[in-house]
Each structure stands twice: as C-alpha cells, then as structure tokens.
Amino acid sequence: MDEMPNLGDLELISDPADALRNVFRRHASGVAVITLLTEAGDPAGFTATSVTSLGTNPPLVSFNVARGASSFSSLEKCGYVAIHTLGEDDLALAQQMAGAAENRFKADNWVRAIHDLAVFPQASSILIGRIRQVISVEANAVVIVDVEQALLGEEKAGLLYLQRSYRSTGEVLAQNS
C-alpha cells in the first residue's frame, strides 16, 4: 500500500463492515414510517431512515429494507405503500413502528385511507406510491416507488436519526434561495 498522507485526526478503519457502520452513524438520516398491506389486508409497516428521492421525472422514491424484516414478505407482494415523513414531535410514532411487529397498529393513532393503507395523520407529510421494483441485494433490498400523490400536514422540525439516537433538525444554519 502506498504511504498514507497526513490526514490530521481522521481514523482509518479497514474492516468494510465497521467502516460502513461508523460512517453512517455520523450521517444524519430523516426518519420515516412506511405502511403497507399484508396479503390478508392487514396493516403492516416499519420505521426507516433510508428514504430518498430518485428524481421528479418520473417522480420516484426509494428506501432500503432488510429481507429478514417482519414486513418484507408482504412488501414483496403488496402494490402500494404510504411513506410518512416525521417531525420532532413524532418520536413516539417512530418508536412504535420500530417496536415489535404485533404492537405496531394496536394504538388508535392511524386510519385507513388511500388504497386502504394505514395512515398516521400526525405525520408532517405522506407520499402514496405504487411499488415499481424490489431489488434484492444479499440480505437486503432496495424498493423503488412511483409517487402517485401526497398528503401534506403541518410543517415542523424534522426527526433525525444520528449516532444511534433520535434527534431534531435544530436551528437553520443557511437558507437556500
């Protein structure tokens, strides 16, 4: 290996799995809740920090999920999802949907809406979309969704996940025009 230049206080992590874990613990991610229907028509869902826009022409979003996740078999077979963006006051919802699968829809904080999907009205926004493609990659999958419509709620400070904890977006440092 070539001699490493002086990188100041940066620590080199050579193990790929440790490198990935350590880097993404330092990368804040927005927290979302994704809901869908099982084959029996029951609500299913989970908390995700991997939702991202793929672009507007056509309007596409993606998210990642472990193939061993409790909702994955239903996700492969369902047609539609509701992707909820969460604000800082939605911490309890994020934790509810990250908890045991059998407890995720026990509370009365959701309603059936478009495509009969479970929707949490307190979310800051909700994208409704049709699953275009599920790409399996080893023990994980990338899900690509065609955006059909949105429900917009109250604009509020976003809920983030960073350093293995939930956080708020905090203060505005700069405003883009």
Rank of each mutant, 00 (worst) to 15 (best):
H115Y: 13
S53W: 04
V51I: 10
L117P: 03
M1F: 09
M1Y: 09
V65F: 04
G79H: 10
P59S: 10
L151M: 13
G68T: 15
I114K: 09
P58E: 09
I13P: 03
E171P: 00
A82H: 03
S125M: 11
A139Q: 15
K156W: 00
I34W: 01
E76N: 10
N64W: 01
V23D: 04
A17W: 02
Q175E: 11
P16D: 09
L75G: 02
T52D: 03
S62L: 10
A28D: 05
S165T: 04
V51D: 00
P43N: 13
K106F: 04
S73M: 04
D2V: 05
L37M: 06
Q163Y: 01
A28L: 07
A28G: 11
V134P: 01
L7G: 05
L160H: 09
S124V: 09
N109C: 12
K156Q: 13
Y80P: 00
S74C: 06
I13R: 08
D15C: 07
P59E: 04
D15N: 15
E39I: 08
I126N: 01
D2L: 12
G79W: 08
R132K: 14
D15L: 06
Q95A: 12
R167S: 11
I126T: 12
G55Y: 02
A141T: 00
E3G: 07
R67W: 02
V172R: 08
S125Y: 07
V143W: 00
D18A: 10
G158I: 04
S168L: 03
E148F: 09
I114E: 15
S62Y: 02
V33N: 06
P58Q: 07
L162R: 06
A94P: 01
E154V: 06
K156V: 12
S125A: 15
Q175R: 15
D2W: 06
S29Q: 11
V119T: 08
S71I: 02
V51E: 01
A82K: 03
Q175P: 02
S62T: 03
L12M: 14
S14E: 13
